[in-house]
Computed example of a mutant assay.
Amino acid sequence: MSVLDEFRLDGRVVIVTGASGGLGAAGARAIAEAGAHVILTGRRENLLRARVDEITAAGGSAEHRVLDAVDEDAVATTFGELAHAVGPFDAIVNNAAQAHQAAVLDVGKADWDRILDVNLTGTFIATQAFLRHRRNDRSTSVVNISSLAATVGVRGQAAYAASKAGVVGLTRALAVELAREDVRVNALSPGYFATDMPGDVLADEAATTALLRKVPQRRIADPAEIGAPLVFLISDASRFMTGAVIHFDGGYTAL
């Protein structure tokens, strides 16, 4: 097998949560391009359908399921039905998340609970369901999407930062626990991408200028750029990597 062949995902079944837009949609497109059958999940069916249409129009293989990441029963049922229909899973990308921007004294318990529930508990629920229906005759991969906010202080993001730091801790714990079962668990920690999530910052010229001073590459990433590291972490090219946290942020966390 050549080096480039190791990055191929032909014949694999990959779930991407939170895939109706942003990094989830961009990642799903790249994973399908690498040869996998991709299952996109999220709460907005019209957007999921559009993403699946884009993938299939480009020659890829994809389908979608409307799913709330924190509905444990629905996740368990849906994953079971999918495994029965398309076969056991090779990988999951836990991308479903919500942003939250507020001064610490303005963060209510309901806000805190919601962000931790979606970003951290949702990742745990989906991972459990994936493990119950994973392929067991070759290496499988869990990729958790964290954030630079898990590593560096970001003003007004107490709940979001705590949830993403929790994702990093969960990643490392599961990597150790599952290593001998040939399940790799890694985290990808993106910086600022041109998506809806940092939209308020990017819509403000002064805020964007201030942000770029903290990014050594002096740019905001295009969502399509998330595809290559995701394919790497799912593929055999990363078969000796587990428990890693990859910062994909233009050098932000290097400062």
Rank of each mutant, 00 (worst) to 15 (best):
G80R: 10
L67E: 13
R44E: 04
D71V: 00
T78A: 13
G80N: 12
R43W: 07
A50Q: 11
G80M: 12
D53M: 07
E54Y: 10
V66T: 12
A62I: 07
R43I: 08
L82F: 07
V70T: 14
A58N: 09
A76R: 13
R49W: 00
A69K: 05
G80S: 10
L47N: 03
L67V: 11
L67I: 10
A57D: 05
V75N: 02
E72H: 15
N46Y: 12
R51I: 08
L67P: 02
R44Q: 09
R44L: 05
G80D: 14
A76N: 11
A74Q: 13
E72C: 05
V52D: 02
I55E: 03
E54I: 09
R65S: 03
T56A: 13
A76T: 11
D53C: 08
R49T: 14
L48S: 05
V70M: 04
E72F: 08
R65H: 13
R51Q: 15
R44N: 13
D53T: 12
T77K: 10
R43H: 09
T77N: 02
G60D: 03
S61I: 00
V66W: 12
T77Q: 06
R65P: 00
R44T: 11
T77G: 00
T77M: 01
T56L: 11
R49H: 09
A50I: 04
E72G: 12
A74L: 10
R65L: 05
V75G: 01
D73P: 01
L67Y: 08
A74E: 14
R65I: 07
A58V: 07
R43E: 06
A58D: 11
A76G: 05
N46E: 13
F79W: 00
E81N: 09
E45S: 04
T56V: 15
A62M: 05
A74C: 06
H64M: 15
L48Y: 10
R43A: 08
R43C: 04
H64P: 06
T56N: 13
R43F: 07
F79G: 02
R51H: 10
A50D: 11
L82T: 10
E63Q: 12
D71A: 00
T78M: 13
L82D: 14
A76F: 05
T56Y: 00
L82V: 14
V52T: 06
E45P: 01
